[in-house]
């Protein structure tokens, strides 16, 4: 009995620390930030174009925002390799859908598909935060935000990425009117009702602020604007509607086209 007891005791005194494993880490963080805001009949999806790893800027222009269909735009942020490959798979699924059903997938269906695709890799996740923006079947502007394993919800606005903590409280204040009250007797604030010009300047302010205070944000930004069917574009294309330094282009329809229009606005950000 004494022997029996001694044996495990002696064993327990051996060094039990495992060798220092240099296990391959399949993830990286490539910085940057994304943001989306929904309006009544439009949706704005934006991201900066810097890609970094640690203190190194890998490139000053890498995309994070992608046009999926005529009424859906997806922004990805986190591990860039996962982001790019996730977008590639989403686009492939959308193509298959169109072949099978002879129509593009609707926004809320894309959102649900993204959730299943993300959860499908629950135990080796895509290290990516996704924000999906676009126009819903009923013509309303919509934003869906996701966590890396697929939890999602529809919201009026969302910021994600390196500067999420800088931008989101600002958006709470300016989009959701948090901690603000209307003057007595005036109309109540309704989130998601702001005019396009206001939303655009909030997006620009968010990114210039984040650029100022966060080293991983900067270089440039791309703002995608998805307009609902038959919506006027005067508040975007009209004389003097864009801020200084902005360049705009209209992205052609991807499919048959049902009247939604997508515009891409680019603007430089500080490079330091």
């Amino acid at each position: 009995m004494a022997l029996y007891h001694n044996q495990p005791m002696a064993h327990a005194q051996e060094p039990t620390a495992a060798p220092i494993e240099h296990r391959f880490n399949p993830y990286s963080d490539n910085g940057g930030s994304i943001l989306a805001i929904a309006g009544t009949d439009f949706s704005v999806i934006a991201g900066d174009t810097r890609q970094s790893e640690g203190y190194n800027i890998q490139t000053r222009y890498a995309r994070k925002v992608w046009q999926l269909t005529d009424k859906a735009v997806l922004a990805t942020n986190g591990f860039a390799a996962d982001g790019n490959n996730f977008v590639k798979r989403v686009k492939q699924r959308l193509e298959w859908y169109e072949h099978a059903h002879h129509k593009p997938m609707g926004l809320k269906s894309i959102a649900r598909m993204i959730q299943t695709m993300l959860y499908g890799k629950r135990f080796f996740p895509y290290y990516v935060y996704n924000i999906l923006g676009g126009i819903e079947e009923d013509g309303s502007g919509a934003v869906y935000s996701f966590d890396p394993v697929g939890s999602y919800e529809r919201e009026a606005c969302r910021a994600a990425g390196a500067a999420q903590s800088l931008i989101q409280p600002f958006l709470d204040n300016q989009i959701y009117f948090k901690n603000q009250q209307p003057e007595p007797g005036s109309q109540p604030f309704i989130p998601g009702n702001l005019p396009l010009a206001t939303v655009l300047s909030l997006v620009v302010d968010s990114f210039t602020s984040a650029t100022e205070r966060h080293i991983e944000v900067g270089d440039g930004m791309e703002i995608y604007i998805v307009m609902a069917r038959d919506r006027t574009t005067d508040d975007l294309l009209g004389e003097g509607k864009l801020q200084k330094g902005m360049e705009i282009e209209e992205l052609g329809t991807l499919g048959e086209g049902q009247g939604e229009r997508t515009f891409l606005v680019r603007q430089a950000l500080k490079r330091d």
Partner: peptide, 11 residues
């Protein structure tokens, strides 16, 4: 602090 930076920079 990081949230304060973001909002203050904007407001």
């Amino acid at each position: 602090a990081d949230k304060l930076y973001g909002v203050a920079e904007g407001l």
